[in-house]
């Protein structure tokens, strides 16, 4: 399963809810304001680092760039473009969007 999170981890609990129930091996794609969860040096960083032991974490590059944070992405998070987003949706048979 692919989980998408589009809310800032500092403003909503979408990322935490996602991590609470996401099965080991499922992928997490951070988009829109969700990309703030992909950054190093934030209050959310340890949580995401912990999650990366069980999940592959992706972040959408155009949304990182729009927010000027592409240089602060946490090591181990893979950035993807819109094409990569489509590939992920195709690769995983189901998508849960944490809105």
């Amino acid at each position: 399963m692919l989980h998408t999170v589009n809310k800032s981890p500092f403003q909503a609990n979408a990322l935490l809810s996602c991590l609470r129930v996401a099965k080991k091996g499922s992928a997490i794609l951070l988009i829109e304001d969700g990309v703030y969860g992909a950054l190093d040096g934030t209050k959310a960083t340890p949580t995401v680092q912990e999650a990366m032991k069980n999940h592959k974490v992706y972040a959408l590059a155009p949304d990182l760039e729009a927010r000027g944070v592409q240089d602060k992405v946490l090591k181990g998070v893979e950035t993807v473009d819109y094409g990569g987003f489509v590939d992920l949706v195709a690769e995983y048979d189901t998508v849960q969007a944490w809105l």
Binding site: S8, F10, Q11, D33, Y36, A61, P62, D63, E65, A66, R67, G68, V69, Q70, D71, D81, Y82
Partner: peptide, 23 residues
């Protein structure tokens, strides 16, 4: 304050996402 501080982040580039960069 809160996520509002991100409004002032340097280096915003909205070309790929096709939004207006108002920073």
């Amino acid at each position: 304050m809160d996520d509002g501080v991100y409004q002032l982040k340097k280096g915003q580039d909205t070309k790929a996402s096709e939004m207006k960069n108002f920073s």
